[in-house]
Nucleic acid binder design. Structure first.
Ligand SMILES: [Zn+2]
Ligand SMILES: [Zn+2]
Ligand SMILES: [Zn+2]
Ligand SMILES: [Zn+2]
Lengths: 595, 595
DNA sequence: CAAACAGGTCACCAGGTCAA
DNA sequence: TTGACCTGGTGACCTGTTTG
């Protein structure tokens, strides 16, 4: 099965992991049903649509998570699941627990369709489950009962948050801190007094970097030679142990994040490396033909094809709406994997729970891909992705493509270097939740963690633009975030719309545009804002062909497409007056033709 | 010091006894003492051996590569043990537990005498030690003992594929890459961004050519300051590591084997070539007088002499039992060397570990020699080796010789051409372990390799007999394997018996024949099977002169001499009815005379 | 006893050094 | 600048001792 082969190619790091037979045993019928339907995935949309009715109950009965998925989509789930079973150990955690948040977030998300499970599933499979809550150390059958028993209580070292081996010198401590403290008090060593204000956070990863602060932490948590406790411990301290553990867990996560983000230089460098790595992977993926099997077309066309179909393919789970080249969702797995890999290069990101990482990625993958694509350069330094607004023939794609082209122009006008682009992309990824109204569903600790990460990334990005027009740059960059969020929404909506059109056989695109935008409150608000002045022109929104309503009033507290695109796509000359009257450029065709 | 580290791994118990830690007070001086001892290890072995800690340097001086260069019996045990250390990737655990079995195969082998050391030693010497576990990539200019010894751990630098010195910054890395990465993160170095597309391959030879790509590779393989691991490696990880290493080794070995055997045509051609070379060498060897110094006798007589005495000479390690012409064992070294050379012409055979090659050759050398001898042809196309059943004067040799004659007749009736004979011989060589009950002692990876090699040879051989009587040929060839195995056993037993006779000065050959066969369960079963019907004739086995007990019953599950020789020596007309009543032809004289 | 911890042990590694 | 070697640790296990 070529799907398996593809997965094997895409997931080399999972190759050497053992087969998760337990997981297979857990959901045998489930998998069988899925696998049996895999073959249909290769069928063109027409054939798949004919079998929609009979196979729909099958899909819903096999897995409740995909209840309202269309049949073709179920086939893709099958392919991915089968491949995941074969390849991934992460399949355990991805499927052992009920699916993280397949329906709640998407249902809350106003613009999200109910069939984005392919992306969710792919991300859940590809995003390594290594977060802090589950123990990654104990997975094998350790024969020793004593050590595993004490370890399994989950006690953490009060000094470094590593797994504690017991109660040493009056506190729960790991073997390392125990030995360190013993050595420290045996030979009365005076450590060098710490170069950085004696306030190093001590976690497992960095506990050996500052002996001074480590000993300080040891003493501060109460380690003492006098506090030794011998003999068997009565079970009266169980409760206290658990409390300590949980407190230590929360603290250790934030400490780890702080430590991880301590070195701003390292953060930037790592992101930069990851972004370049991402670019290489992307080039390879595009050239490999997974995206588009049409061999004759250029790289630029392939990229456009990729972007144009990404949401439809990934969310819809079937081929593109055009008949020219049906693309399977699995073909995009390599792209998803590349994004996941890039996310892992963002220091601190891996400290988040897998659930949150998946959500962030799900909300930002289109933007991240777009940013990486439009910043790709050839060896000679020229952009590989060149927008041509007139390229897309069908009217439906015009709005979307034009917006993309607009964004590309604006983005490139910033002339960000490699590092800045990488940081910006990372920031887009970590801020993607902001544009969704499901932000409240973040639990507190994780929200704090994400906030810290965002702040640090933003700080790092800001420091790269110190200079003459730093303020202008900052404002422009901020604007770009909003543009991106709306672009993503528009893109998804658009693709969904076009899909419907393709199925219905009609092309009421222009007439329906109003409806499309209706489903998107923020965007609608942005679109309506210039019309506040002229409410009579509300109906003219549909007539995209000639929309030049003068933008007015101050920038919205939540700047959106309309207000942002109204700015000149070149470096803003006068950033203090962004309210300049500008035409609304939702349809850029007019603008291009006029300018 | 790598020597110390290696020896510590190999001999942890010695290490424990050696360090006089009880006398030393506390850690710093303790460490100093230990380290100072380490410093001495850097001295050459001669100097170090005079010091207080001589064990490790002495052990290191017994480098197996030099130890087995001199094939004397005194060095034999050392060579085998050292070779075992060299061969086995799992030598860690092998020494941790009491050494499994120094030579289980030879002791388990029922027919092997305790004095087959000459053959083993000769093979160990002649078989080139170049197996796959040592690194073939490093052939240039590294005369350092340290690198070659630490190579034995089998760990390579994940950055440059040089020999890794340990687990540095989260990955296995060499000293060079470790230092490079340390320097890179200490001083925040920004290397010049690589002139050629940032895709330099980083290997040992060119790792200093592009710092940019080297650092990139370091990061991409996961080097990080956060990933450092201090202290002793946990047991589980070490075991896992060794497993991974073995798996990787096995996988690469299997890959190499597959590649080696990919071209079936080349395989056949090479074997054919080698077999012909083998024949030429054999002719030269026989004519040289090494085999028999009696100059007057014919070539045919020399061949018979060779065969007749081969086992005795080679296994016994002294001259023949006859006083007429004492032949030293070393005279047969040329033959053994010829066989070894032939084995090297079998593609893929050199990929096996030396240990296994030696074992295979030891078990098959007689058959291989026999096959080569009986298929030797003069320039005019006539067989050089002609059996004459009446030729052997002493009664003891008759059984053996008769069986050989029978086999020759049967084998030649197949009318195999040169290539087929060569393939058959190679197959015999690679399948020789099948007939031994020590097959279970093969470690898995090597057994798999041998199996692949066997399958490929068998496939190549089968493809040469496509045609009318392909099935018959196949069956006949399969039978020949079993005949050969039993022939070898009989031969060895016989020679051993004769040796005893020679020492005792008696000739109770016929009377003892029963006893001889008693020591060989499989053969005894075969011999007794026809006698089940007539148990009274058990004693008549000794009377080889007139043994025609009717063969009956079905073929044994392990076809042996009796059942196989009972088939007609011509092409089987009716292979579906092998149970046909046939006379037992252990002594072929009767049969030959009757037919 | 068995559980649990202080202390010891020694297989390991980061960082420094210095000749090439 | 590189990397083989050295120094100064580090921490996973082990051993001996102290308690319920
Ligand atoms: Zn700790
Ligand atoms: Zn500090
Ligand atoms: Zn290296
Ligand atoms: Zn380079």
């Amino acid at each position: 099965m070529d799907t398996i082969a593809l997965m094997q190619q895409l997931l080399p790091h999972l190759q050497n992991q053992r087969l998760p037979t337990a997981a297979v045993a857990e959901t045998p019928s489930n998998l069988m049903a899925f696998v049996s339907g895999t073959g249909e995935a290769a069928l063109p949309p027409e054939a798949a649509s004919t079998s929609a009715t009979p196979s729909a109950p099958v899909a819903s009965s096999t897995n409740p998570n995909f209840a309202n998925a269309n049949p073709t989509f179920a086939n893709y789930m099958a392919a991915v699941q089968a491949a995941a079973v074969l390849q991934s150990d992460a399949f355990h955690s991805a499927f052992r627990t009920p699916f993280p948040q397949s329906s709640p977030s998407s249902s809350q998300n106003s613009s999200a369709t109910s069939s984005d499970s392919f992306l969710t599933l792919a991300l859940s499979t590809l995003v390594s489950p290594g977060d802090s809550s589950p123990e990654n150390s104990r997975d094998d059958s350790n024969s020793r009962s004593t050590s595993s028993e004490s370890t399994r209580t989950g006690l953490l070292c009060q000094v470094c948050s590593d797994t504690a081996s017991g109660f040493h010198y009056g506190v729960f401590a790991c073997e390392g801190c125990k030995g360190f403290f013993r050595r420290s008090i045996q030979q009365k060593i005076n450590y060098r007094p710490c170069s950085k204000s004696q306030q190093c956070a001590i976690v497992r990863n960095n506990r050996n970097r500052c002996q001074y602060c480590r000993l300080k932490k040891c003493i501060s948590v109460g380690m003492s030679r006098d506090a030794v406790r011998f003999g068997r411990v009565p079970k009266r301290e169980k409760v206290k142990m658990v409390e300590e553990m949980q407190k230590a867990t929360a603290r250790s996560l934030m400490d780890s994040m702080m430590v991880e983000l301590e070195d701003e230089q390292a953060l930037s460098t790592a992101v930069d490396w990851g972004f370049q790595e991402f670019g290489e992977t992307l080039k390879t993926e595009i050239n490999s033909g997974n995206v588009s099997k049409k061999c004759g077309i250029s790289v630029n066309e392939k990229m456009e094809f990729l972007l144009k179909n990404f949401s439809a393919v990934v969310n819809g789970g079937h081929g593109t709406f055009t008949k020219e080249c049906p693309v399977k969702s699995v073909a995009y797995l390599g792209l998803i994997k590349a994004v996941v890999t890039f996310s892992e290069s963002v220091r601190g990101f891996m400290l988040l729970f897998q659930k949150d990482r998946v959500r962030l990625l799900k909300n930002s993958i289109f933007q991240v891909l777009l940013l990486r694509l439009i910043s790709l350069k050839s060896d000679s330094g020229e952009y590989l992705f060149n927008t041509n607004i007139q390229r897309f023939p069908d009217t439906g794609a015009k709005l979307n493509s034009s917006l993309v082209a607009e964004f590309v122009e604006r983005f490139r006008s910033l002339k960000l270097d490699s590092r800045q682009t990488a940081l910006f992309t990372a920031l887009v990824m970590c801020q993607s939740e902001i544009n969704c109204n499901s932000a409240a569903s973040f639990e507190l600790s994780q929200a704090n963690l994400v906030k810290v990460l965002q702040d640090k990334l933003w700080m790092a990005l800001q420091k790269t633009v110190i200079g003459a027009n730093a303020i202008d740059m900052t404002i422009l960059i901020q604007n770009l975030f909003s543009i991106l969020g709306d672009l993503k929404k528009l893109h998804e909506l658009h693709e969904q719309r076009l899909k419907e059109v393709a199925f219905n056989g009609q092309l009421p695109v222009i007439a329906k545009k109003e409806t499309v935008i209706e489903g998107m409150p923020a965007l609608r608000r942005a679109l309506e804002s210039p019309i506040v002045k002229a409410p009579s022109s509300t109906s003219s929104i549909g007539k995209i062909e000639n929309p030049s309503p003068p933008k007015q009033s101050v920038r919205d507290r939540h700047p959106t497409v309309s207000s942002l695109l109204s700015a000149k796509p070149v470096v803003v000359q006068n950033p203090s007056s962004p309210e300049d009257e500008q035409p609304l450029n939702l349809c850029v065709k007019d603008k291009v033709s006029s300018s």
